[in-house]
Design a protein around this nucleic acid. Structure first.
Lengths: 343, 343
DNA sequence: GCGGGTAGTGAAAGCGCTTACATCACGCTC
DNA sequence: GAGCGTGATGTAAGCGCTTTCACTACCCGC
């Protein structure tokens, strides 16, 4: 039983600008000016203010400041959820660039749940601008945000209204990747992923079709699947039990590819001899899988950074013409496609 | 050359409570009450207010509200960086639990850079409370935060001052894991990781020593290494070139273990026959490595959720006695330790 | 018929800042 | 020596809410 009487449960009230002003014998306007190095303040006065600030341990209240200035100094980023290295890396890039500009970042995961639209709208009221990731919310929300003149950048999502957008190149890389598989001589190449599930996957699906068309082959339909490893394993299990099973699959992302690897192992299929597999994203684990995964690298940090920069520009300059950026991706050939590693 | 004249670059000024009041023919106090279902408002009045709100598309300004009420309805979480599934999962859990309570979450990555202390202090001014992850900031900052009476929960970091703490069990599991290796009959078990780099790893190192001591063996010194895969590969390369190389290594986390796998492959060592390897965290890729990694599962989402709950409780109840929670971990035996998979 | 609750509402005082504008004392210029 | 630009500071009006307190009806019981 410790005596708690000497400890206060209440958060100590911080000193206000009024107390500093009184302490320094000046007006609050002068304190404000001295504090922010704005306007003219005589050196001697500044010194007195500084001393008062130090003695009272004064820090300006952010809410008061924000209310007076009319902005938050904060931006928000909305993503489906944080699992998987892809989202977390993009967010890290976003945070990094934002912090460098003194902007705080608020995160909101929609988890694909209903009602997240309201949460996004609410987030807009707490920030100066938003970046919206892929299919987190419907176009209705984007439109509402647009109507409210919320500075917006769409990440890995086609442009809409006046919002900026940033994305990674998908279609051409998917075409090249599929072409690579075709050159290996595989006779049937499947696609696992949901072309309607996200704009990125839709593009990859298109590129996959492009390659088939380029060599005069018919494009097999996609095996629709979620994004997780378990989804990939499930889809692959179904696919591999077919009479006419493919001898190669391009997966919408690395997680799905991991699931395919797992299913193949369970079916005692050898990769890539019995089945070639490719992924997308080049997550850190990709090079350590068995076999190392052929995939496509996305500049995840840069996606986040660039989104932060566009958003910042849009907020501070009131720019209105939408800007759209497509970052390059890179084919990463390892051995799951049938190539033999150079090392 | 599109005419932009009809489009305004300025964010439209939102309706204020004054306009709603005028529109509905009531006072702002009544609007405020009606809006928040606080206090008594006659049904007819409420209806008029609601209509005015709808017509003007009014949404209360969060800054005004926060300033008046004296809190932010937001909390912050500080982490070293977001890379790796561990941090992102914990943050996801934190976000999830916070969002459920209507709290926004601000994130701050320290990236281990200098001067992050000030950023953390600044974050404290933008939020109602903070959770601090592992070794993100020094004790001086924790103390300053404590002094400012900022509600604080320490995550995967030993308690300090009056802050709450949440962590996962490390020592006993590390002991069990090492013991398991010992039972396999390995004659020399190494440890890769930095016991001083994070409190968690320090505990794991202790448990590793416990097991050695329990069987009357001397504990080899740790091979100090960073957290990344590349760090692990580097450490392993050095370790494996020793004359008296170990026949098993326990790694401080799964990423390091992946690096060891890579180094072993390069050295044409077979896992687990020539070298047994264990990790920590059970990241999603762990079960898909070659061979599947024996590791220890941490309840990452729960760590984040629990931190959010403790923080929330501390903020809203002004509780002052520190609370400390240790979440259980679980040994996950796969095949990198020398076991043969049951399937 | 009168005192006293009570439901409903409004006036106004904050919350802690920023900033436009007013003020004042100097030191110049012509 | 009158007029004036200028540097330094203060006054006060916001920013958009919440909340206390006072006030007005109105209804009730005795």
């Amino acid at each position: 039983m410790k005596a708690l009487t000497s400890r206060s449960a209440r958060r100590r009230r911080d000193a206000t600008i009024y107390e500093v002003a009184r302490h320094a014998g000046v007006s609050i306007a002068t304190v404000s000016r001295a504090q922010r190095n704005a306007g003219v303040v005589a050196p001697a006065t500044r010194a007195r203010v500084d001393q008062a600030v130090a003695e009272l341990n004064y820090r300006p209240n952010r809410l008061g400041r924000s209310l007076a200035r009319g902005h938050h100094d904060a931006t928000g980023i909305v993503f489906p959820d944080l699992s998987g290295p892809y989202y977390s890396s993009v967010i890290l890039g976003f945070e990094d660039a934002s912090a460098a500009e003194g902007q705080s970042v608020l995160i909101l995961a929609t988890h694909g749940r209903r009602g997240s639209g309201d949460l996004v709208l609410d987030l807009a009221d707490r920030t100066d601008g938003l970046v919206l990731f892929g299919q987190t919310v419907g176009d209705d929300i984007v439109e509402e945000l647009d109507r409210r003149r919320v500075p917006l950048v769409l990440l890995a999502r086609p442009t809409h209204g006046e919002a900026d957008s940033v994305g990674a190149e998908n279609r051409a890389s998917a075409r090249a990747l599929t072409f690579h598989l075709l050159e290996h001589g595989y006779r049937q190449i499947g696609f696992i992923g949901d072309p309607d599930g996200s704009p990125d996957v839709g593009e990859r699906w298109l590129g996959y079709g492009d390659a088939h068309r380029a060599v005069g082959r018919e494009t097999p339909g996609p095996v629709v699947s979620g994004f997780r490893t378990a989804d990939g394993a499930r889809a692959a299990t179904a696919l591999l039990s077919q009479a006419d099973r493919p001898d190669a699959v391009v997966c919408a992302n690395d997680e799905i590819a991991m699931g395919v690897l797992e299913a193949a192992r369970a079916a005692r299929l050898s990769i890539p001899d019995d089945l070639a597999v490719t992924g997308w994203d080049d997550i850190p684990a990709a090079r350590h899988l068995a076999p190392p995964l052929t995939t496509v690298r996305q500049p995840m940090l840069d996606l986040g950074r660039r989104a932060a920069e566009l958003l910042r520009d849009r907020i501070s300059t009131h720019r209105i013409e939408p800007r759209h950026e497509l970052l390059p991706t890179e084919l990463v050939i390892r051995s799951s496609c049938g190539c033999t590693p150079s090392t």
